[in-house]
């Protein structure tokens, strides 16, 4: 028996819903409310668990073709690209409270552009830098000055 994508997803969901279902019985309840805080989560989790079981069974019932071939060059490139985007955004979010919105945004916009499409000429590098600085400057000016949305300041830079 070999599980497909759906089967694995179903098993993960089943496991987590059962674990949370167990945890829901530990929740304290107030005498004022006839049903405790665990009442509704238990309904949702039971539905989720039941649906996950069906998903796994459906997956088992379906005959699986041979295991997919190893990712081709293009598919691997896509994976690296997606992981790269997450990494750059993660770094942005992590660094923003340290560097401040303005500095972090310049680095992020520049970094992500380069990650998505590596610039090949001085002209493209310039375009990249201009977009990065302009995005940061314009959003900061518009939001902080005109729209009164206060953006994070850096703990390291105070800026």
């Amino acid at each position: 028996m070999r599980l497909g994508r759906d089967g694995i997803a179903g098993l993960i969901l089943l496991g987590s819903s059962l674990a949370l279902l167990g945890a829901s019985f530990d929740l304290p309840s107030l005498p004022l409310v006839p049903v405790g805080p665990g009442f509704y989560p238990r309904i949702v989790l039971s539905v989720l668990a039941a649906a996950s079981v069906v998903l796994v069974l459906q997956d088992i019932a379906r005959a699986h073709a041979a295991a997919p071939a190893a990712p081709a060059g293009a598919a691997r490139r896509v994976r690296v690209l997606v992981a790269g985007v997450f990494a750059v955004v993660g770094a942005y979010v992590f660094l923003m409270p340290l560097l401040g919105f303005r500095v972090a945004t310049v680095l992020f916009v520049g970094g992500l552009q380069a990650a998505l499409e590596w610039p090949r000429s001085t002209r493209q590098w310039t375009a990249l830098a201009v977009v990065a600085v302009a995005t940061s400057a314009v959003t900061y000016l518009v939001f902080e000055r005109y729209l009164l949305v206060l953006l994070p300041r850096g703990r390291w830079t105070g800026f």
Partner: peptide, 15 residues
């Protein structure tokens, strides 16, 4: 170009 659009959209999402 997406490479230019994506970062700007993400910055606005973060804001």
């Amino acid at each position: 170009r997406l490479s230019m659009l994506a970062p700007i959209v993400l910055v606005l999402c973060v804001i």
